[in-house]
């Protein structure tokens, strides 16, 4: 998902837990929210920083592939919608960084880790957006996959994260729909538009499936995160749900899912489908995706080019405060 391969610290059996840890786990089991500054195991805190940080990074890097097309949007209305959507992503990054900050890490520290390659973002944003239909596919498939994960995360145990997810889910409700709306237009348009839509589907299907991360049904990290309720479903559960939801939507559009082995399995009440190429996934995560360099490069450039602006405003605020203070002093 937006937070793929988050290593969880901890994973202790009940016998190994301290009384504090047991009391903490019981609070979570009762469905209580954990708030900043309350006692929490160090592993819980660190895992959350990693997960929320990665999620935040994914939002701001995720601005770029769609941001690409804002200046090329084919109508004024499409331009406004796309811009509003990409702007929302900046907002979601902001909410998530703030949630992470309640755990004792600053936004600048998190950004430094992103820029130096020490923290990751979702693999999906390292794929190029080559045509306007990709704006449809990204909204429909990528946001669709993201929502699948984010809706349950509204119930996550960490209060600030949960509140951020609630706000994000509320705002994102139009994102997937606008993507599907683009796809509908393309699929009912000229043969060239339809072909563009199918091509986008072909390129984004497997990367979208990869967003959920490799199978984690036997992973100790996932087990711990699920016990802490910072992960609600397994990767495989969410992926299955996504496929089951998406297939009829593709059929409605008249698009073919690029998987010859896709078929309904009556017994399990869901579709059987092919796994994505996980070696490609690991290559992208390792930095070798088609756009890793451009994406990270763009973020680093924005940060470095903006340093004088951030410093200039801070310097003014400091000076203005000093001037106010000495004016008060003089008046007394």
């Amino acid at each position: 998902m937006y937070a793929q391969l988050v290593k969880s610290e901890g994973s202790k059996s009940r016998d190994e837990m301290t009384p504090e840890e047991i009391a903490f786990q019981e609070r979570i089991d009762r469905g209580e929210k954990i708030e900043p500054k309350e006692w929490m195991p160090e592993g819980y805190r660190k895992t959350l920083i990693r997960q929320i940080g990665q999620h935040a990074h994914s939002e701001i890097v995720g601005q770029l592939p769609e941001g690409n097309w804002i200046t090329r949007a084919p109508t004024l209305e499409r331009k406004a919608i796309l811009l509003a959507k990409v702007q929302d992503e900046a907002g979601h990054g902001l909410y998530l960084y703030c949630a992470a900050e309640t755990l004792g890490v600053s936004r600048d520290e998190l950004l430094e880790k992103l820029h130096s390659g020490n923290m990751k973002y979702s693999s999906i944003f390292n794929y190029p957006t080559l045509t306007w239909a990709d704006m449809g596919a990204v909204g429909w498939l990528v946001d669709g996959a993201a929502i699948m994960n984010q809706v349950p995360l509204q119930r996550t145990s960490y209060g600030p994260y949960s509140r951020a997810m609630i706000r994000i889910c509320k705002e994102e409700s139009f994102h997937q729909r606008q993507g599907y709306d683009i796809m509908m237009k393309m699929c009912s348009g000229t043969p060239e538009q339809k072909a563009m839509a199918q091509d986008a589907m072909n390129r984004f299907w497997y990367p979208a499936l990869m967003m959920f991360g490799p199978s984690d049904k036997d992973s100790v990290h996932s087990a711990q995160s699920m016990a802490w309720k910072i992960k609600i479903n397994t990767n495989d559960e969410l992926r299955q749900k996504f496929v089951d939801q998406t297939v009829p939507q593709a059929e409605y559009l008249g698009l073919t899912i690029p998987d010859p082995d896709l078929k309904w399995n009556e017994e399990k009440g869901g579709y059987d489908f092919s796994e994505p190429d996980w070696s490609e996934f690991f290559a992208v995560i390792a930095g070798n995706g088609p756009c890793n360099e451009e994406r990270l490069g763009a973020r680093v450039k924005a940060w470095e080019d903006g340093a004088w602006f951030r410093d200039g405003l801070m310097a003014h605020a400091t000076k203005a405060e000093e001037r106010r203070r000495s004016a008060r002093h003089a008046a007394e």
């Binding site: 405003l313 003014h316 605020a317």
Partner: peptide, 9 residues
């Protein structure tokens, strides 16, 4: 309370 943000003043 709706959230937080960063600003110089």
């Amino acid at each position: 309370h709706v959230g937080s943000l960063h600003a110089p003043d």
